[in-house]
Design a protein around this nucleic acid. Structure first.
Length: 325
DNA sequence: GGTAGACCTGGACGC
DNA sequence: GCGTCCAGGTCTACC
């Protein structure tokens, strides 16, 4: 008989909407079940991996059923990790502030963006999402869990820190990211990355961003993405998808730099909430094409394209072919 | 400070 | 089936 946890959630929390709000909900060890509307995952806890299923039985409450019994200490850790994933600390008032700036999301209640149970997992996932198509990111995360993760859990920083680059490259196929990921893991192990400082509201965004840029494998895109994963939503994470969004959805034209500048200016009015306005706009474009994210099938299509977390079939441009549709 | 090219992998294409 | 091309963001060397 396993343990069961009941976790209080804000009254406006909706599991299906708030989990299926960012591509990471499709990365191992997380598995969203579109039929039961539950999230299965494996948490790395003190006494070993713990498989669990997260469900919402009623408003304002999340229930988590574990396959094994957890100690008191493990229960506390599990609560903290699940609260982090689901952003349960972001209150109704926090979301109201966002909706006041961007009322387009008030009726749907969007505002929370799914993340990982630990900062380390968020950072490694972000590194695996750089310079690769989404299907490559999915594969890397699956193999990291299979090869390095105990019981299918995401590998811990300690485990990754003592892994050889050749193992990461050969068995997890992370390519040139191998030593960068190991160096990041070593920094976590020796306490060089302080989560409480990164999430300290009294520390300016600029200072955090500059620190993130010094980390191995973290460039401008990854640092900006880490900012939103840390709950700092004032920056856009600019990648190839941003350009696509700027051109196709917002209708900006010109060179890449001009489009990026126009996109930045477009979201300027949303101030401290720029990323959320940008992200939910983009997420809606994905959902218009693919249907609601909570109904996406668990496995992405083999041809899954470039869009982060989206199971789109995108025919490849034939060489020499016309670029027009 | 800005730019070019290398770094890897996997998918798509042409033969 | 095999070889080639391409996309993706970061890092380093160079100007």
């Amino acid at each position: 008989m396993g343990s069961r946890l009941n976790i209080a959630a804000p009254a406006d929390f909706v599991l299906a909407r708030d989990v299926c709000s960012y591509g990471y909900f499709r990365l191992a060890p997380d598995r969203w079940d579109p039929i039961t509307k539950t999230l299965a995952t494996v948490l790395g806890l003190a006494d070993g991996p713990a498989s669990c299923t997260i469900a919402q039985s009623e408003p304002g409450r999340v229930s988590v059923i574990f396959e094994r019994t957890l100690s008191r200490v493990e229960q506390a850790t599990a609560r903290a990790q699940i609260s982090r994933m689901l952003r349960l600390h972001e209150s109704e008032a926090d979301l109201a502030a966002f909706h006041a700036v961007d009322p387009r999301w008030a009726s749907s209640g969007r505002g929370r963006i799914f993340r990982s149970p630990t900062l380390f997992q968020d950072m490694i996932r972000t590194v695996t999402s750089c310079n690769v198509t989404w299907s490559g990111t999915v594969g890397m995360n699956e193999r990291l869990c299979q090869v390095l993760g105990k019981g299918g859990a995401f590998p811990t920083a300690h485990r990754m820190a003592r892994t050889r680059p050749g193992t990461l490259r050969g068995r997890c196929r992370v390519g040139y990211r191998d030593s960068r990921m190991i160096e990041l893991a070593k920094m976590f192990v020796r306490g060089a990355i302080d989560e409480s400082w990164l999430e300290d509201n009294t520390v300016a965004d600029d200072e955090i961003y500059r620190f993130l840029l010094t980390l191995p494998g973290i460039g401008p895109y990854a640092a900006s993405n880490m900012m939103q994963l840390l709950g700092r939503y004032a920056m856009l994470a600019v990648d190839s998808e941003t350009l696509s969004h700027g051109r196709k959805t917002l209708g900006f034209e010109g060179e890449d730099t001009a489009v990026i500048k126009a996109v930045q200016a477009h979201y300027e009015p949303f101030g401290a909430h720029r990323f959320r306005s940008y992200w939910f706009e983009k997420w809606c474009v994905y959902e218009e094409a693919e249907g609601p994210a909570h109904a996406w099938p668990p496995k992405s299509d083999s041809t899954a394209g470039k869009q982060k977390g989206v199971p789109t079939k995108k025919p490849r441009q034939r060489r020499g072919g016309s670029k027009s549709a």
